[in-house]
Design a protein around this nucleic acid. Structure first.
Lengths: 209, 209
DNA sequence: CCATTTTTGTGAAATAGTTCGCAATTATAA
DNA sequence: TTATAATTGCGAACTATTTCACAAAAATGG
């Protein structure tokens, strides 16, 4: 079986398409064209078709796509036809916000374990999940078959926490700390640096001074 | 004057380089090579040099870059040689977390105004900033010379809030709601969709099933 | 002062990603 | 039935980005 490398930008767009399709389902729309999707999410129709073409033929020429069908395909492709248990490390401001963020639950991401080292936070509850000490990491990962970790600790603790996640067998890490993390090749790492996003804005604003 | 289009990926990397350089300054390192930077942030040294080449010649052949000097250049390029006042709309979980996030302040982003429509939130304080009603938007933007807005309201309210920001003269918007927003061409828009990031992870995990 | 080493800056080559253009397919209307 | 319109899927062309490779410049050590 030939493996094509899928551009990350394509994957991100698929995620956006899927959300748009969900909106259409709510509105009772039955079929949609690549042009409609394009208009709805702000890309070109050729882009939409190309993105989908990586994964198969989902449409009918002259007609378009059946909304529910395409939505199902996208959710499957994105691995969202299942629930993912997640461990979140760092129950500070950002960690708490993420733990309580409805957007994750809606897409099948279940933060089943929240860990911290601060005794003041351990034992408190975020939603219906109790904050536990970092030491139980390995156990919880095994018990709940957790493959994804979210890091929301201060930069100074980020690499240590990451090493522990790797050690515990975590396969993918979403890092919110502004620190470059080292992980083995077998572990998928994504960085969400909130400041970087503001800095792209300030760069562009500063250009036209 | 010829204007080169700078790839957005380049701008994001400059932001990462600048943080790495700050780390070096703290460690008392005086000079650094493109290879060192590359190693530190996980890109190729050619990439580092190419990125910098868009903006000038900052190094010395055979030697490398003076850390403090390069840092200064990058901060200037990124528009971080000034403080940016920011209005944040939506004082929910995520909004509160961002309002209190130290990472913004450290980079010169000052959330000077926080607005919401929920009477229960209005009048409360996040750090030393009081949550005010949405109606004062226009006044605060003028008073504080605010050019950047951060949207952390639910998807259903996002477009309305965005229209108001545009109306009030905001020039750049960082959108955390999972909604595709329409803005005039003159306004810079960036989307930070937290779920999209997790979905890229689940896509990659689901690939090797 | 010259040979050697280091490391930048940059044109050229390679790779990756997007847009174009159109044949193929389906639906619709005459 | 047949012409017309809509819209996909996809190869080809185009554009953008990254990597390569090396001359040029600076430092170092004999």
């Amino acid at each position: 079986m030939k493996i094509y490398k899928i551009p990350e930008a394509t994957v991100m767009r698929l995620s956006v398409y899927s959300r748009f399709l969900h909106q259409l389902i709510d509105e009772g729309v039955a079929t949609v064209s690549s042009g409609d999707i394009a208009k709805g999410v702000g890309v070109s129709s050729a882009q939409v078709r190309k993105d989908l073409a990586y994964f198969g033929e989902f449409g009918t020429r002259g007609v378009g796509y059946r909304v529910d069908e395409l939505y199902g395909h996208l959710m499957k492709i994105l691995g969202l036809d299942q629930t993912w248990n997640i461990v979140l490390i760092g129950a500070g401001k950002l960690g708490s916000a993420l733990a309580l963020y409805q957007g994750f639950a809606e897409r099948g991401f279940h933060i089943s374990t929240i860990l911290d080292v601060d005794p003041a936070r351990i034992g408190t509850k975020l939603g219906n999940v109790e904050v536990e000490p970092l030491e139980v990491l390995q156990d919880r990962v095994k018990e709940n078959n957790i493959r994804v970790g979210v890091v929301t600790v201060p930069a100074s603790a980020a690499q240590d926490v990451t090493d522990r996640l790797v050690q515990a067998g975590i396969k993918a890490i979403l890092n919110f700390s502004p620190r470059i993390l080292k992980v083995p090749n077998s572990v998928i790492l994504r960085n969400v640096d909130l400041s970087v996003n503001l800095e792209v804005l300030s760069f562009n604003l500063a250009l036209n001074r």
